[in-house]
């Protein structure tokens, strides 16, 4: 599997899924016309990644802003990660919020409600 990298645009985030390092990074803003155009190809790549028998995935989410459709698909991403964990994969998830943006912190807290993933909600320092 090749590295999957999508450069950021004004309305879509930077995405990097690196099978070598076992890392997934989402950064920037996500408010596209159709959020599925961003997330559906990523979900396919994730399925491909987990099919490689990789043991671990580290996920870093550094979104500055995302719309409701993107939040819905973030929820789906979390379900997929949960499913991977339930299939004995090691998933480490770090969800970041901007300093002072307590709303985003709440967004992540609510999203992770009822999940048994190994996750942290962290304040951005960059």
């Amino acid at each position: 599997m090749d590295k999957y990298e999508v450069m950021a645009t004004k309305t879509t985030p930077y995405i990097l899924l690196d099978p070598q390092s076992g890392e997934l990074l989402l950064a920037g803003e996500s408010w596209p016309e159709n959020a599925m155009d961003v997330f559906h190809p990523l979900f396919e790549k994730l399925d491909e990644y987990f099919a490689l028998d990789k043991e671990q995935l580290r996920v870093e989410v550094k979104l500055d802003y995302h719309n409701t459709s993107s939040q819905k698909l973030m929820r789906e991403l979390i379900f997929r990660l949960q499913h991977a964990k339930d299939s004995d994969k090691t998933v480490i998830l770090n969800l970041y919020y901007l300093d002072g943006d307590t709303d985003m912190m709440e967004d992540w807290e609510e999203l992770m409600d009822d999940m048994s993933l190994n996750y942290q909600i962290l304040k951005r320092t960059d």
Binding site: N67, T68, Q71, K72, R75, D103, E106, D107, E110, L111, D113
Partner: peptide, 16 residues
Amino acid sequence: KQVIQLTRFSDRNDKR
């Protein structure tokens, strides 16, 4: 549950 979460999320975005 999804509707509740997304409604709250949307409300927070509106507030922002």
